[in-house]
């Protein structure tokens, strides 16, 4: 197994374990911290796929800003397991069953899909993830969705300021 393979499997394991810890942690702050670990693992995966820009931006935006805001809300709301209403055991059981069904549906879809069979991801090859190519693609082929997305962000910001303003 080459270094890339070792890295891939360890990052996968890290991502999966952290994701499970997100669900299992009793303390909501711990859940957020495990989610940040998940994002680090995913960024690692992106780097293996040579999408460096995406990896770093994932860190800056998701792990660096959005998760901090999650933490703010959780800290200010002061949630504790004692105040959390306890769900009944049947609800948990049916939740697991429903989630498992969804997962098996996705896996069967991927396995049965023809053009994804037999290909492995390109590791450390190709130019797709580099910033130059990404920039060219964004501003040439996808310029309209890009501009619309920026207007969407602007409206969200303005909305937040309007709602949060004190009169």
């Amino acid at each position: 197994m080459g270094t890339a393979q070792i890295l891939f499997w360890s990052l996968t394991a890290l991502a999966l374990i952290s994701a499970i810890m997100v669900l299992v942690s009793k303390n909501p702050v711990y859940s957020v911290l495990w989610l940040i670990v998940v994002f680090f693992a995913i960024s690692g995966h992106y780097i293996l796929l040579n999408a460096q820009f995406l990896a770093i931006v994932n860190l800056i935006v998701y792990a660096g800003a959005i998760m901090v805001l999650f933490l703010f809300v959780i800290m200010l709301m002061n949630l504790n397991t004692e105040t959390e209403p306890q769900k009944s055991i049947w609800m948990k059981f049916f939740g697991v069953v429903a989630g498992g069904l969804l997962l098996s549906f996705f896996i069967s879809f991927v396995i049965s899909s023809a053009d994804l069979k037999g290909k492995s991801a390109q590791l450390k090859e190709g130019e797709i993830g580099l910033i130059k190519t990404l920039g060219k693609a964004l501003f040439n082929d996808y310029v309209i969705p890009f501009e619309i997305a920026s207007i969407l962000f602007l409206s969200a910001m303005v909305g937040a300021v309007v709602i949060g303003k004190k009169d």
Binding site: I36, I56, L59, I60, A63, G64, A65, V68, L71
Partner: peptide, 8 residues
Amino acid sequence: AMSSLGVY
């Protein structure tokens, strides 16, 4: 990216 992590 690293300076955003410093906030934590």
